[in-house]
C-alpha cells in the first residue's frame, strides 16, 4: 500500500498543475503577510482563499488525476494486490502531496508570522478540508464512469459547498426570521464542511463580534473548547464518511 502511495506521490510531485497550485498558495500565504501589516487581517484573507480555492483545486485535480491514472490502476489491479490497498495507497499519496503543498504555501508563513489559536485553527481546518475534498473527489471519480460528467459533478459539488448552500441557508433565515432558528442554523452549518471550517476560524478571531444575534449563539457554541473539538470531529467525519463509501464502492465495482 505504501509503495503504491510512493509511486503516486512521485508522480504527483512532478506534476505541473500541482506545482502551479503550490506557486498560487505561496503567493497567497507568503504574499499576504508581506502585504498586510496586521497579521490578524492577513489570516482572515488567507481563510477566504482556503475556503474557496482549496476545495475547488483539490476537487478538480483529484478527479482528473483519478480518471487519468485509470489504466495504471488496471495494471496494478491485475497484480495480486488487494483492491482496498490500491485505493488506500492512492488516497494516501494524494493526501501527502496536497498537505505538503498546503504546508509550504500556507502553513509555514502562518506559523512564522501569526501564532495564536486563530492561526492554529486555520491550519487545522485547511488540513482537514484537504482530506475532505480529496475523499469527495474520489467518490465522484469512482462513482461516475464518464470523465466529462465526473468533472461536471465535481464543479457542481464545489459550487454547492462554496456558495449555493449558504445562499439556501440565508434564504431560509430570511423566511423564518420571526422564529428562534439559531440552533437550527447551528445544526445546518455542520452539513457543509466549508461552513464548519469558516465558523471555526472566525470564532477564534475578533471579527466574531460582528456576527450579530446568531453570532452570539455561535460564539456560545464554537467559542468554547467543546465547540472547537466538536467542529474538528465533524470535519474528520466529513473526510472519513466519503472515504469509507468510496472504499466500499471501489472494492465491489467494475472498473
Amino acid at each position: 500500500m505504501l509503495k503504491i502511495s510512493a509511486v503516486i506521490l512521485q508522480n504527483l510531485l512532478r506534476n505541473k498543475a500541482i506545482f502551479g497550485y503550490l506557486v498560487l498558495l505561496c503567493f497567497t500565504g507568503w504574499g499576504m503577510f508581506l502585504y498586510e501589516s496586521q497579521p490578524e487581517k492577513a489570516v482572515l484573507s488567507i481563510l477566504q482563499i482556503v475556503l474557496l480555492v482549496l476545495p475547488l483545486i483539490t476537487l478538480i485535480f483529484t478527479t482528473t488525476y483519478y480518471y487519468h491514472s485509470q489504466e495504471f490502476l488496471f495494471l496494478l489491479l491485475a497484480q495480486p494486490i488487494k483492491r482496498s490497498d490500491i485505493f488506500a495507497g492512492l488516497y494516501i499519496g494524494l493526501a501527502i502531496a496536497f498537505l505538503a503543498v498546503f504546508f509550504i504555501g500556507i502553513g509555514l508563513p502562518v506559523l512564522l508570522f501569526a501564532s495564536g489559536m486563530q492561526s492554529l485553527f486555520l491550519l487545522l481546518s485547511g488540513l482537514l478540508l484537504n482530506l475532505v475534498f480529496i475523499a469527495i473527489a474520489l467518490l465522484v471519480g469512482v462513482g461516475v464512469h464518464d470523465k466529462s460528467r465526473g468533472i461536471g459533478v465535481t464543479l457542481i459539488t464545489w459550487a454547492f459547498f462554496a456558495f449555493i448552500y449558504n445562499g439556501l441557508v440565508i434564504f431560509m433565515m430570511y423566511q423564518l426570521s420571526d422564529y428562534p432558528i439559531e440552533n437550527l442554523i447551528l445544526v445546518l452549518s455542520f452539513l457543509n464542511p466549508v461552513d464548519i471550517a469558516r465558523i471555526m476560524v472566525i470564532m477564534k478571531s475578533e471579527a466574531s463580534a460582528l456576527l450579530g444575534l446568531s453570532g452570539a449563539v455561535f460564539q456560545d457554541f464554537f467559542g468554547t473548547a467543546k465547540g472547537g473539538v466538536v467542529s474538528i470531529l465533524a470535519l474528520i467525519l466529513w473526510s472519513i464518511i466519503p472515504f469509507w463509501i468510496t472504499h466500499k464502492m471501489f472494492r465491489k465495482r467494475d472498473l
Binding site: 509511486v7 512521485q10 508522480n11 512532478r14 487519468h68 491514472s69 485509470q70 489504466e71 495504471f72 488496471f74 495494471l75 491485475a78 497484480q79 495480486p80 494486490i81 488487494k82 483492491r83
Partner: peptide, 21 residues
C-alpha cells in the same frame, strides 16, 4: 481473495504507465 492473480500474467490492450518513471 486476490492471491489467485499470482499465477496470471496480463498484457493489456492499451497501457498507460506513470509517465515520470
Amino acid at each position: 481473495g486476490h492471491e489467485y492473480r499470482r499465477s496470471i500474467g496480463y498484457m493489456p490492450q492499451i497501457t498507460r504507465f506513470p509517465e515520470q518513471l
